[in-house]
Simulated scan of single mutants.
Amino acid sequence: MDEPSLVLCSIESAARVYPDRPVVFFMNGLDDIVNEDDEKKARERFPTLSSYKNIYFLPLRLKTVFADTPFLSWYEKIDQTREIYWTHNKADACRLALIWKYGGIYMDTDVISIRPIPEDNFLAAEDAKYTNNVAFGLSPYHTLSWEFMENFVQNYSGSVWGHQGPRLFTRVVNKYCGVPKFTSMDHLKCANVSYFHPQRFYPILSSSWGKYFQVWKDLPTFNNSYGLHLWNYKNKERKFMMVGSNTLVEHLYQQYCPSTYSSILKTVTSHH
């Protein structure tokens, strides 16, 4: 239940960018939430986020999430002990089932939101060749969500990293649009949804993920981005935001998740 600061920053930044929308964080380890009291208890676990009235914490119950989707029969058959990427594959499935049922925007918890996304139905390119599933938005019961779920189950290959995630999204996009080619920042249309330029979420490429944890002489403006994906899975050395480091990530926390930042600042000062 002890969430890393990046997760808290991600949730807080979304709550700030979308003050009039509920920001829902699904997590394991939460008890069922049936009444207001349960909701209050869940909120109290995350004091840095308590001032945001639009943040909701909900328990992740896979059978409930997967009910009435192609995932339920897949999930009931799978032998989780033999799955090497089970956490990733399960997360890849959950986001699709949730967006199919409820619609909205899905974002990973290593995305810092910096401005509102102007479209309801969108996919985002990671680079010239690949689509990623880190951030996407679709209205409820969108045919594309169903197609993603079916393709996931039909082509399931649990031992290939990303096969059910970025590669799945790329397969479906390529089926409809080939490899979309950007000539400007403008969105393309693909499968009837907006297809975003890589700059929108991936202005720093996965191969350069470490730049977030470096000191920059001139800070980038990220004027073309809606959110910044910090490539947490690449971060094997467990780098994190350090107060006083003057790194890019510290500046991002100060600007986009000030409550999270100030609580880390307090902990640091009280330890000295």
Rank of each mutant, 00 (worst) to 15 (best):
L144E: 05
G165C: 05
G104V: 10
Y202T: 05
F57S: 08
T131I: 15
E39F: 11
C9S: 14
L205C: 07
P4T: 03
D2I: 13
K217G: 05
L49C: 11
K77S: 15
G210W: 13
V173Q: 02
Y233A: 14
Y202D: 00
K175M: 11
G210R: 15
F182K: 00
R167S: 07
M242T: 11
F66D: 03
L62S: 12
R61W: 15
D68F: 06
V111W: 02
T81F: 10
F25E: 00
W146V: 02
L228C: 09
S73V: 05
P220K: 04
D108A: 08
I114P: 01
L188F: 09
L58D: 05
F169W: 02
H272W: 06
R16T: 09
V160T: 13
F201A: 02
P118A: 03
Q255D: 08
M149G: 03
V173C: 09
V134F: 04
V179A: 08
N192T: 06
L96E: 02
I11W: 09
L72P: 01
A191K: 06
C94T: 14
V153C: 08
S270W: 06
D108L: 10
S206T: 06
Y52V: 04
W100L: 07
N224D: 14
V111L: 09
E3I: 09
W146E: 12
P203K: 06
T247G: 04
F57I: 09
V34Y: 10
N133P: 01
Q214R: 13
G178R: 05
D110S: 10
A97R: 04
H272V: 10
T48D: 07
H229A: 08
H272K: 15
G29P: 14
L49K: 04
P19A: 11
E147P: 00
T269N: 13
G104D: 13
F152Y: 14
A15V: 02
K189E: 15
P70L: 00
L228S: 02
V243T: 09
L98S: 03
V111I: 15
K63T: 12
S50R: 10
T143Q: 06
T131D: 01
V134W: 00
F26W: 15
T247S: 15
Y256L: 05
T48H: 03
S145C: 13
T221L: 11
M27I: 06
A67E: 14
V172H: 00
S159T: 12
A42R: 04
T260C: 13
V134G: 08
R61C: 13
S139P: 03
S206M: 10
V179R: 06
H142F: 10
K217Y: 04
Y233M: 12
K234H: 13
F169R: 00
K77V: 02
P116K: 14
V243F: 14
K40W: 12
S206N: 09
V111N: 07
A128K: 12
F213T: 05
K175C: 04
W146M: 12
L60E: 13
E150A: 00
P22E: 15
D120H: 09
K175A: 11
S159R: 08
Y18A: 11
I78D: 00
Y195M: 13
S194P: 01
N155H: 12
L168C: 02
F71D: 01
V160S: 07
P116E: 15
P22Y: 05
V179P: 01
V7F: 12
I117P: 01
L205F: 11
G158F: 05
R200L: 00
Y106S: 03
D110W: 10
N192D: 15
K236L: 07
E83I: 11
T81I: 09
D68T: 02
